[in-house]
């Protein structure tokens, strides 16, 4: 294949710039899946579309050069949605909960308001000139190391800035606060979701006897629910 044929081929497909292509692909998947989350009534379908949307967003992060955030998005966000999906399956095992329909009137009003909100946001997105200038497309240094240093309190990306007398302080305190917050949330969620003893039997207990599984473990709760629902 000689060069002329190649250049002809290239001129036939001017849009085959992979960055633009993948941006369109990921953005399209993310937006369409997000709309599908709104439109579908089945919780499991919703969860699937949400996963698609979040995964495509992770792809967008990779495209924007934020690899670490993208990987974390895949690991935490999508993993968290996995739990949502599990709950969806558990709770939809009861048929009357599969689809909780919204009245059509509400949908119309929501659609109008959403369109208005979207119009405002899109207008805002294109209102600043410097935001519209296309990216240089220069491969930038990976941000994982500076990110990690910033989280322990050192801003390595600010060192070479002559205007600063001292490098900006990092995010050590927020990092610690978030970690304690997560711990508190963990304990709180476990406390809220624990199996409680009660005098009036719960509806699920009437159907399923939780004799073989130890009460208190999350699995015990889930399997009880599934058993109760699918009877």
């Amino acid at each position: 294949m000689n060069h002329e044929a190649l250049s002809v081929l290239a001129s036939l497909f001017p849009f085959l710039d992979w960055h633009g292509f993948f941006f369109l692909l990921f953005a399209g998947v993310a937006c369409v899946a997000a709309v599908m989350v709104v439109l579908s009534d089945n919780v499991v379908r919703m969860a699937l579309h949400l996963v698609l949307s979040l995964g495509a967003t992770a792809g967008l992060f990779f495209l924007a050069g934020a690899e670490f955030v993208g990987a974390m998005q895949l690991m935490i966000y999508v993993g968290g949605t996995l739990v949502l999906l599990v709950f969806g399956v558990m709770l939809t095992a009861q048929t009357q909960l599969v689809a909780l329909r919204t009245p059509a009137g509400d949908r119309v009003i929501a659609g109008i308001l959403a369109a208005a909100l979207l119009a405002v946001l899109v207008q805002a997105a294109f209102s600043i000139d410097s935001w519209q200038k296309a990216g240089q497309g220069v491969a930038t240094a990976p941000t994982a190391t500076p990110l990690g240093m910033a989280l322990v309190g050192v801003r390595v990306d600010q060192v070479a800035d002559e205007n600063l007398v001292r490098p900006k302080s990092g995010y050590l305190l927020p990092f610690e606060i978030v970690s304690v917050h997560l711990l508190v949330v963990l304990v709180g969620a476990a406390y809220l979701a624990r199996a409680k003893r009660r005098r009036v039997p719960r509806p699920v207990d009437l159907v399923a006897s939780a004799d073989s599984v130890k009460p208190g473990s999350p699995v015990a709760a889930s399997s009880t629910l599934v058993a109760g629902g699918s009877e």
């Binding site: 699937l48 995964g55 670490f68 974390m72 895949l74 993993g79 996995l82 599990v86």
Partner: peptide, 22 residues
Amino acid sequence: RLNVGVFFVVAVLGLEVFGVIL
């Protein structure tokens, strides 16, 4: 070659369970 290769592999591998649940 990914700068965050380890996490990428572990994260994507964890998505396999989605197919199983579905």
